[in-house]
Every structure is written in C-alpha cells, then in structure tokens.
Design a protein around this nucleic acid. Structure first.
Length: 490
RNA sequence: CGGGGUGUAGCGUAGCCCGGUAUCGCGCUUGGUUUGGGACCAAGAGGUCGUAGGUUCGAAUCCUGCCACCCCGACCA
C-alpha cells in the first residue's frame, strides 16, 4: 500500500474512493452496491444523527418506526410515485429456503411463494400513509409530525461509497396537516433545518431552492432542496423537503373532519437526508493528505502525541498531559492521548491527518523542559509551538476557529466557481470547468432536457432568493423572469 | 444494461504472451534497538492464484460461463 493518497488534481474520483477506504470510513461488501460502514465512519454518522435528531425534536417531531417491507399493491396507489421507483425496487417473493435435493447448499423453496410480493422500501410514504389513514380522523389529530431513522434500498446500477449505494441509511420525516399553508410552512421549515445543519455542523454552505418539475420527487407537488458544491465543481444534492399536496392523502384515502365539520383530505410533506451527507462532508473539505473534518462532527477532536525516549520520559509526559485531557473532556472536547509505543510519532501524525482529526498536540522532552507544546491544526496544517500554560483555552478557541475557517474556505470556493452566464457559447465553455452557472431558462422541461443532453448539466434548483431579473433563455432565447442554477451533479 | 480494464496472503504487486504448485514490498508475530513527520535489525507465520467448469500427464498461466471492482456511457426524487 502506497503511503500517500492519489491527488485530487490527478484523479478526483480515485482520490475519493481511496480516502473513504484509507480513512476507515467504509468499504464495499459481499453484496453488490451495498457498503459496510466501519466504526470510524459510523461514529461520524452518529454525530450527524444526534445533531439532526435534536433539531427535529426541537421543531416538534417525534420518532417512530415503520416496516421494511411494503406490499406491492401499496406502491402502485400513487401513480407518479410508482413510476419513479419501480425500476429500482428489490422484491421479496418467497419466505423459506430448503436443502437442495440435488446436493450442496440451500435453494428457495418453490412451495413458499408469497401470495403478494413484498417490496423492500425505497422510501416509506406508502406504508406510512396507509397507517395515517387509521390515525387521522379530526383536525384535532393534526398536525402529525413523525420522523423515522431507517435503511432503504434502491437498486442503483452504478454505485459509489456513500454517494450512491443500493442500501443506505437515512431519516425520513412524514407529516400531515390540516391546511395547505401549514404543510408548505412545514416543508420550508425542514429545508431551513437542513440548511442550518449543513452550514453550522458540516461547515458546508448550501444553496436553498426549488426543483424543476423534471427533478421533482415522484409524488410531490413541489420539491425543495439544498445543493452543495464539491471541490471538483460538481453539485451534490444534500437534502430534500417535499410538499406532497394531497397526493398521498388521496391515494390512501386519508380524510379528516375540519373545524367547519367538513370532510377534507389532509396535506402532506416528507423530507430526508441520508448517508450521502458523509460523501458531501468528505468532498467539501478534505485534501490530498486525507480527511478534514469539521470539529463539530469529528469523532476525535484533539489527539495528543507524546514524543519520548524511555519509560521515565513517558511517565513525565503523562503526568503533565493527564490533567489536560481531563480538563478538555469536562469541557465537552473529545480527546485521544495516543501513547501507544508501537508506532512512531511520524506515523501517528500522518495517520491522524488521514483521519481528519482537527487539532493535534505533540509534546516531547524539549517541550517538557521549555514548558511548551506543539499545536497543529488539520485544516491549514500549521504547526505552532505554544506555552503549555493556558493551552486548554487555545485548543477550544482553535476548534471554533477551524469550524469557521473551513466553512469560509468552502464558501469562498463556491463563490469563486459560481458564474453568471448570458450566452450559449459562454455556457458550454464554462460548464466544462465545473461550478454553478446562473443562467436564464425558459421554464420548459424540453429545454431543460435538451441542455442536459448537450452538456450533462442539470438545473440544480431555482434559488429561493432569486431576484426578478428579466432575460432570455440561454438555449432558446425565449423570455425568462429569473435565473436558475445549472451544474453537473453527482 | 452496453463498451473497455482488473481480480494472485490483510493491502499493493511479479509471474500469464511461451503450462511444470508462486516473486517482492507493506502489514502481522517474537526478540532487540528506536521515537521532534509514515524507524531499524534478526527470526517467523500467512496462499484451494475471484469462482464454476473445460483442455492437458500437469493450469495462476490456455478456453468458456459466472461474480465482484474500476473507468466511460445509459440509468439515478
């Protein structure tokens, strides 16, 4: 195994794949397209889950759990929904195996065929709405604000660790409301929650917007999204929030009696983020030395590496470091004091950089004599020798500063790679370099598809903060009232 | 699913064209010396050569099917 990663400049996707494996985040499994999330990767996901779950609870949601299997008939109740997912569903047809009468191993027992096939959920709208039918009678039962943490399966043809896997982990919120207005507000609120999570925890700036009809969720009236820019200039959809209108209520016959004693269909939303966020996190900040993790999501925020000759020196260092470890822990900082003697300091430095630990401290005999300690920050790879006295506050400040700096760096990168373009020639030239292109579009699906066909660029979103700005469609020249964001996407 | 490539120890590989039971490095184990940016010496352990068939006295090597992974397409709320 070579010591260094492939560089981003040489081969971005190889860099990504290698990094995921070398940093011990995930690996491929025996099952095509399914990944094994390794402990280090999973602990980052757990941090994401914790933060998101707290935000969901704060906005009034509660968790529940619905089954993995969906009766086939459920899926077909909402027409555009089934159309959207049919091509990528795993189907359970039998419930038993038996010994192969012709020899080795087991075979599917042909006598154990299911009357109705079960679909492994690609998303849970259908099972959930079939339950909501029983749970909702009156406006007093509304709003119903439920989230579930689950795995889903989408049989993708081409997969990549975290970015697109056949099975992935996610959360899916499913809410029901008495009015259209309230459901739209919920959809928008959850988009805000996602944006805030991405920006404050992941340190990743996102663009909030609305999807075009082409890119809309199957079964939604409107899909809101957050879009992030990766370091290769490609866009990554990091989260979606859907206003479902009354589509699922109608498909599953979910009616309620309103205050005026009239029967009406309820209004729905659904919203989700997945382990894809791990991919976003990696590609937003990491460099050729390895991961760069935002302190708020780093499983280990500070690592301390002692440099010593002999037991006695190590004991002296431990005596100085142990109280610091304790003090940091009491301030909620996760610290690892790595005094393992089977690896050299240099090895440890490289290893913790690969794993993205935000702050590294090194202390050796020189420091012991001088009353200093060396502090290295992962994002800039700067090393500074500092007085040991007061280092605790410096560490806490540095963690905060790293969180802010990597956000700013990602923000500046996005700004430097976002362009207004006004002609087709400009568009086709610019799109080759990656980045977001802000351009006029005539609003038709045909034009959108034509542009995709010609350039591989899709409309990532119509930004929520788009200003009215009359212009002409980049392709057709037809009038347009505002700009949309085009990019090549993951 | 189409085109191209790859599969040999935990990882990375040589050998394959031209058939004779497998090379080297990293890692691992033990002992010793080391430790301020991926340490060194010595001795060890580890392989049904992706998988299932076929050809052959004999297959990592030749042939066929299958599987997985990578790249390019198609597909992908």
């Amino acid at each position: 195994m070579s010591k260094s990663l492939p560089s981003r400049a040489d081969n971005y996707s190889e860099w990504y794949n290698e990094l995921v494996k070398r940093a011990d985040l995930a690996e491929n499994s025996a099952v095509r397209g399914c990944m094994i999330i390794k402990p280090y990767g999973y602990s980052i996901w757990e941090k994401m889950q914790r933060a998101l779950d707290d935000m969901f609870k704060e906005t009034g949601h509660t968790n529940a759990y619905f089954p993995l299997f969906i009766p086939k008939s459920f899926l077909s109740k909402e027409a555009s929904h089934v159309e959207g997912f049919a091509k990528e569903c795993a189907v359970v047809t039998h419930y038993r195996l038996k010994n192969d009468p012709n020899g080795g191993g087991v075979i599917v027992d042909p006598d154990a065929k299911l009357e109705e096939e079960l679909i492994v959920r690609p998303t849970s709208e259908t099972v959930i709405w079939s339950s909501y039918k029983n749970w909702i009678q009156s406006y007093r039962d509304l709003p119903l604000l439920i989230n579930q943490w689950a795995n889903v399966v989408r049989w993708e043809m081409r997969t990549r660790l975290f970015l697109r896997t056949a099975e992935f982990l996610w959360q899916e919120g499913h809410t029901a409301h008495a009015t259209k207005q309230e459901a739209i507000e919920e959809t928008e609120q959850m988009l805000e929650v996602y944006a805030e999570f991405a920006e404050t925890f992941m340190a990743m700036p996102v663009l909030k917007g609305i999807k075009t009809a082409n890119e809309r969720f199957a079964g939604a009236d409107e899909t809101y999204c957050i879009e992030a820019m990766m370091q290769d200039g490609k866009a990554l959809q990091a989260g979606t929030s859907h206003f479902l209108g009354q589509n699922f209520a109608k498909a599953f016959d979910v009616k309620f009696v309103n205050k005026e004693n009239q029967l009406d269909y309820v209004w729905g939303t659904s919203w989700g983020v997945s382990t894809r966020l791990m991919g976003a996190l990696i590609m937003a900040h990491s460099d050729d030395q390895g991961l760069v993790l935002p302190p708020k999501l780093a499983p280990i925020q500070v690592v301390i590496v002692p440099i010593y000759k002999g037991e006695e020196q190590l004991e002296n260092i431990k005596a100085r470091i142990n109280p610091l470890v304790k003090a940091l822990k009491s301030r909620g900082v996760s610290v690892k004091f790595d005094f393992a003697d089977n690896q050299s300091p240099g090895f440890k430095f490289a290893e913790y950089e690969l794993k993205g630990v935000p702050v590294r401290l090194a202390i050796g005999n020189r420091d012991m004599e001088n009353g200093t300690i060396e502090l290295a920050r992962r994002d800039t790879r700067e090393k500074t020798s500092m007085p040991f006295e007061g280092i605790e506050d410096v560490i806490v400040d540095t963690l905060e500063d790293i969180q802010k700096s990597i956000y700013q760096k990602a923000f500046d990168f996005r700004a430097a790679n976002t362009f207004e373009v006004n002609s087709w020639d400009e568009f086709t030239a610019k799109i080759e370099d990656g980045g977001f292109l802000s351009a006029h579009w005539d609003g038709s699906s045909e034009t959108e598809e034509k542009i995709k066909e010609l350039t591989k660029a899709t409309i990532r979103c119509i930004p929520l903060d788009a200003k009215d700005d009359a212009g002409k469609c980049i392709l057709t020249g037809a009038p347009s009232s505002r700009r949309v964001i085009f990019a090549r996407a993951y």
